[in-house]
Nucleic acid binder design. Structure first.
Lengths: 143, 143
DNA sequence: GTGCCAATCAACAAGTCATGTTGATTGCCA
DNA sequence: TGGCAATCAACATGACTTGTTGATTGGCAC
């Protein structure tokens, strides 16, 4: 994702107004690799801007998705998560704490063309499920 | 998934009653590789049993999931899909018709242990998105 | 065949998540 | 400074899934 400053530029260039609410969302997303839900972003924005509405946060997030600045991730968890990282990467979902981690898998994933002719693959999504180091440690038997 | 007859056996063995509604769901799932939604199964069951309620279909499906007889698949589509195939396989989601196809990818997917120590991977899910042969044909330019 | 009780039913309500609506207000920026 | 986009509150909506309740049915053990 671009920096908040670059996003500000881009919004201006597109004739969109740079409001404090929008900038609040920019900053809440910047460097945020926790795959926050809309509500989590709302909480963060409200720390410095208590009056912002959840409705507006949703609006700004969807604007950013439309502009291709962030991605929406649906991982079978209840709600949509937003990902400032739009580079190709995979996800690890911890069944203990529910957190989502960005990972880079060594993947040679293909649909064998001889078995699936005429299938046009446009995107491949890999999701690992299991336990993250922190959660694995909790239930690990200490010696 | 087991055959309807085997499921009948298993339900009896567990002290669960084998009702026409349950058998209707068994048959609606048997050999069904279309990844139906609860509503789609409901439709199919109602063909021979018009009075069955959607509530009951949900109930039976969740019972089957609890027994490990079928799987629930969440692919970012609006609703949960049910999959009688519980063997390891992957999915292809068509962005044209929305249909879900079972596929077997040639996958060498791993989380490199040197980069992600202590991550315990328990399951790996691969989802391909694109267009199925039928939908690819529609928009393909005929010569 | 009989009876117990699980299963099902209808008809709700509820809860979650996301978005639409409306009419008023605010405040960015040309 | 003013136009108008953006935001606000406060709803409603809508899809999906599950909970509840009280009555009824019917599977199956005896």
């Amino acid at each position: 994702m671009r920096t908040p400053e670059e996003l500000t530029e881009r919004f201006r260039a597109l004739g969109l107004k740079v409001t404090p609410q929008r900038q609040g969302v920019f900053h809440a997303l910047w460097g945020n690799d926790s795959h926050p839900t809309a509500e989590a972003i709302w909480d963060r924005v409200r720390e410095t801007m208590p009056t912002v509405s959840l409705r507006t946060v949703y609006q700004v997030l969807n604007d950013l998705i439309d502009l291709g600045e962030i991605g929406a991730v649906r991982l079978g968890t209840s709600s949509v998560r937003f990902d400032p990282n739009i580079d190709g990467h995979d996800h690890f979902v911890c069944r203990g704490c529910g957190r989502v981690h960005d990972v880079h898998a060594t993947a040679m994933v293909e649909l064998p063309a001889d078995h699936y002719p005429d299938f046009e693959v446009e995107a491949t999504q890999i999701v690992f499920r299991g336990r993250c180091p922190a959660c694995a440690r909790i239930t690990a038997v200490p010696s």
